[in-house]
Design a protein around this nucleic acid. Structure first.
Lengths: 204, 204, 204, 204
DNA sequence: CATGAATGAGCCTTCATTCAT
DNA sequence: AATGAATGAAGGCTCATTCAT
């Protein structure tokens, strides 16, 4: 009985924490860049201002959590997709495809990731940059593999990986901002081809 | 005499407006993200706080102007450099090279352009995005030319141009954040090759 | 059985109330002026925040109780010491000596009494003042006795008593703040002589 | 003309700063211990909250200024009075008399000095303690003189000075709290005699 | 035109107290 | 009785903008 109660309470707490995170993400994703004040977030989450501080030490902690959450969500999706392939080209390709699809489908996520984050605060911006770097490092590993397997020519893989991620980032952002292209498949294919050629994949 | 005086006054006005813009850019470019308050900017410009509002309707207007200014400066540099070449490939290449060089040389400019802007305000961010889009459009024109001349294969040139700019943006940003690579020339060459191959330039 | 249980319950209640009081005193006496929030006190007492309000109507009530407690403790010590002497001079002297000794020995008590209390709240401060007044009244009784016995000259005994207590208060506080004097006995003797002379005790 | 204007402005500024200080002192001296919030002080001073921060860096700075002001006022009064006498006994006596008179006349000053200060904040409390120490040191100098001149017996003058100041402090505070005695002169004389005897002045 | 003092809404955070469980 | 999550009124402070001079 007591045990049950505890479980309920914990569930409720988790629930509230999630509500706050959800509220924060909603507000960040909002078209009209609403006030991201704690007051506004609390109101959105349906709680009192003070309650917020029962779940997060301060505003920065909330923001950091939002970033980490988004990041791990993205990483999870990518990893799951990559697992389906053996060939490194395919893995790389799949990573990008799922990435683009995810952002296009969950615009709110994209909004925060690509557009809204930087504006919040510098320390925050740095955090976000770290994520981009992580993604670049993941890409670099794949590219290093490809070089090792002589599937692509020798190159500064750090630069290639950065260029690779950058091109996707820009395209995704552009699609989110100005709407997706009519012929999505062709557009995506162009993007993919661009990067595969860029890496130096041999036409076989 | 009166005429002369008027000219002086106008000159003085322009002078003051420029001083404010210069102050704003300096503060934005500062390593330590100083206070970007109007008071701080005015102080730096050597004027009173209230005077600021004689030259700009509000803070947002100032920021918009700063963006536009930076943009036109960048464009001017690119255009001047492009004029030196006839071949479209060379023009494209030159554009990018001068772009990278400029950002690397004038870090303050880069700081504002790539790092500082977004954090300021959303409306602002949108404005910055416009600039990126313009750059993409310029690239697209070149790429369209290249397609028309059958120097590169048929492709969704909008996407290619976006990918092209995105890859440069990311690399520049990375170099600014983490320091330039030791072998700059090789790194830059990798970047260039990546994009040239990406576009599908025929090895001749 | 039931009766017994009731006793237990009452005992437990008293126990909890005491725990709270102890916690409050501990926190108030702490060197680093810790948070004196109800939450902190409850935590220290090992109870939930809400439980506090089952034993005290509010924070002020707790503080009032702490004051009264300290006061009665002090009074108890003084009375016990006084009982050992018959001569009024000796009683007065003994009162002061034990008072000084107590404060010096139990610095935590002194901390609260002389230093920490006033800062908490005004109503509180008034309460503390009442205690000082009581001490003054006790001193006055002794002094009145001495006057009645013609051991000291006629005087405004209310003023003398106030001066008497004030001088001790200041010296104790100074010793607590700046450390005791090296030659404690001589210093205390000076203090005592000062007041005995002040009262007009005849050198015999 | 311009010069005149500047003077006016400076005068007005000083005026405002004084208004704030006055408001703060008033609120601190108030019977009902009103909120000493910046908002309340600003309101009392007839200015906006933000204006306060044009004249004081923060709340602590205000409080420190209030303390220093009160202190220098008190010191000025004492010094002026002491200058009238040559004999050290007379100086000491005069110091105390003017001190008592000042506090009794300007109750608001006394209220802050003796009662209200400590409650505000610990750092503050320390500052106030410093003032008491200064007064004690002044008294000690006089007492040292008296000892050197063999007008009073050898003694731990630090303790005597502390006792001396403490007795006055307590009496003044008591009079402020409970009203002055009917026969003020006699009461004050008792206090004075108490301390003179206490110091060991030879009846001549 | 220029000034810079003045404004006040708004921000983040704390904490005494309440209340559903 | 006991809990501790929830509340929301303050509090100190900042800063874009206004306005009297």
């Amino acid at each position: 009985m007591v045990y049950n109660k505890t479980e309920k309470v914990i569930a409720k707490q988790q629930n509230l924490r999630d509500k706050i995170l959800k509220a924060a993400r909603e507000i960040l994703a909002e078209e009209e860049s609403e006030k991201t004040s704690i007051k506004a977030i609390a109101k959105r989450a349906g709680i009192a201002t003070g309650t917020f501080y029962l779940y997060f030490t301060n505003k920065e902690a909330l923001m950091e959590t939002v970033v980490k959450e988004l990041y791990s969500e993205l990483l999870y999706i990518i990893k799951k997709e990559r697992a389906k392939y053996n060939n490194v080209f395919d893995k790389l390709q799949a990573s990008m495809e799922i990435c683009v699809q995810t952002f296009m489908k969950e615009k709110h996520l994209a909004k925060i990731f690509l557009e809204h984050f930087p504006e919040i605060n510098t320390a925050f911006h740095a955090k976000f940059t770290d994520i981009e770097n992580d993604l670049i490092q993941f890409a670099k590993q794949d590219i290093d593999d490809l070089v090792a397997q002589h599937l692509i020519p020798q190159q500064d893989t750090q630069v290639s990986a950065t260029a690779f991620v950058g091109s996707f980032r820009q395209v995704i952002f552009s699609w989110i901002s100005h709407g997706e292209p009519k012929d999505w498949d062709q557009a995506f294919n162009t993007l993919l081809e661009y990067n595969m050629r860029g890496l130096g994949r041999q036409k076989n």
